[in-house]
Amino acid sequence: MSHNVPASVKKHLLKTVLSFIVFLSVALLLQKYIFADWFTESFWRELAPSSLSMQFAFIAMAALSTMLGFPRQVIAFVAGYSLGFWYGTLLATASTLLGCMLCYSFATKLSKHFQLANKYRLIQRLSAFLASDVFYKTLIIRLFPVGSNLLTNLAAGISQVNKLAFFSASCLGYLPQMIIFSLSGSGINLQSKWQLLLSGVLLCISLLLSIWLYRKEQNQLHVNPFIQQK
């Protein structure tokens, strides 16, 4: 399935796998040798949202973080670790989507005062890419493990693409990585080897889907700005 895929894309996919392995390895080491006393059941029970106000506080903090470019994968991992897989995935996805909406709105207002689209080449390419077929192209960017969530949100806001298509595709595109990292966080907390293994399997499936989308995108003469050859 990987034939006809450029070496640069294969390099990005391999980098994604290695980054995931390193991420889990560091998390396991920190839990076992450095923060063993912190990562206790009682600690996370106190931290876990037990009231509606704390749930809103978690979402607000995570949304603001992702709005400013903080990795959404870390939000999903922490949510999965502290809140469990299902609830962690739900809150992490909601938080990331809210951050996307806030960034989009901010970029829309900011673009009226500054010519941002004319100052940054990648923003220009992203805006041009999202000019048509907003849902499909947004989904491609979100699913492919290469790119910047912040830049995509800014480009969409600056070019003022269709909100409903952009936000719905973003929510759907966020889900795979939210599930993978929330599952891995929950697996480390529960010391569940099958959850960690399942998160790795889901990552591989996600990468295979990315390759399929890339090849389909090439056939339709679309060019993802994040993987465009320089």
Results as ranks from 00 to 15, higher is better:
His3Trp: 09
Pro6Asp: 09
Pro6Ala: 11
Ala7Thr: 10
Ala7Trp: 12
Ala7Tyr: 10
Ala7Asp: 13
Val9Met: 07
Val9Gln: 12
Lys11Ser: 11
His12Ile: 07
Leu14Trp: 05
Lys15Phe: 08
Lys15Leu: 06
Lys15Pro: 07
Val17Lys: 03
Leu18Asp: 09
Leu18Met: 12
Leu18Gly: 05
Ser19Phe: 09
Phe20Pro: 02
Phe20Glu: 03
Val22Arg: 10
Phe23Leu: 13
Ser25Thr: 15
Gln31Ile: 02
Lys32Glu: 12
Tyr33His: 15
Ile34Gln: 12
Phe35Glu: 03
Ala36Met: 07
Asp37Gly: 14
Phe39Ile: 02
Glu41Ser: 11
Ser42Tyr: 11
Phe43Pro: 02
Arg45Pro: 02
Pro49Asp: 02
Pro49Asn: 08
Pro49Ala: 08
Leu52Gln: 04
Phe56Gly: 05
Ala57Trp: 09
Phe58Thr: 00
Ala60Glu: 05
Ala63Met: 04
Ala63Arg: 01
Ala63Thr: 02
Leu64Asn: 06
Ser65Gly: 07
Thr66Tyr: 06
Thr66Ser: 09
Met67Asp: 04
Phe70Trp: 11
Phe70Arg: 03
Arg72Leu: 00
Arg72Val: 00
Gln73Ile: 01
Gln73Pro: 04
Val74Gln: 09
Phe77Leu: 13
Phe77Lys: 09
Ala79Gln: 05
Gly80Ile: 00
Gly80Thr: 00
Tyr81Ala: 11
Gly84Glu: 00
Trp86His: 15
Tyr87Lys: 15
Tyr87Met: 14
Gly88Pro: 08
Thr89Glu: 13
Leu90Pro: 15
Thr93Pro: 14
Thr93Phe: 01
Ala94Trp: 15
Ala94Thr: 15
Ser95Thr: 00
Leu98Pro: 11
Gly99Val: 00
Cys100Ala: 15
Met101Pro: 06
Cys103Ser: 14
Tyr104Gly: 06
Tyr104Gln: 04
Ser105Gln: 12
Phe106His: 13
Leu110Ile: 14
Ser111Tyr: 12
Gln115Gly: 05
Gln115Met: 14
Leu116Asp: 03
Ala117Asp: 10
Lys119Val: 12
Tyr120Cys: 10
Tyr120Ile: 14
Tyr120His: 12
Gln124Phe: 07
Leu126Ala: 10
Ala128Asp: 12
Ala128His: 10
Leu130Pro: 12
Ser132Asn: 08
Ser132Ala: 07
Asp133Asn: 11
Val134Arg: 03
Phe135Trp: 13
Phe135Ile: 08
Lys137His: 13
Leu139Asn: 03
Leu139Lys: 04
Leu139Tyr: 10
Arg142Lys: 11
Ser148Ala: 03
Asn149His: 07
Leu151Glu: 01
Asn153Pro: 00
Asn162Asp: 10
Asn162Ala: 04
Lys163Thr: 03
Leu164Val: 05
Leu164Asn: 02
Phe166Met: 01
Ala169Thr: 02
Pro176Ser: 05
Gln177Asp: 03
Gln177Trp: 03
Ile180Glu: 00
Ser184His: 01
Ser184Trp: 01
Gly185Lys: 01
Gly187Glu: 02
Gly187Ile: 00
Asn189Gln: 07
Gln191Cys: 02
Ser192Tyr: 04
Leu197Arg: 08
Leu202Ser: 07
Leu203Asn: 02
Cys204Val: 10
Ser206Tyr: 07
Ser206Glu: 06
Leu209Val: 13
Ile211Tyr: 09
Ile211Ser: 05
Ile211Trp: 09
Ile211His: 09
Tyr214Val: 07
Arg215Val: 13
Gln218Ile: 06
Asn219Gly: 06
Gln220Gly: 06
Leu221Met: 09
Val223Arg: 14
Ile227Phe: 08
Gln228Gly: 13
Gln228Ala: 15
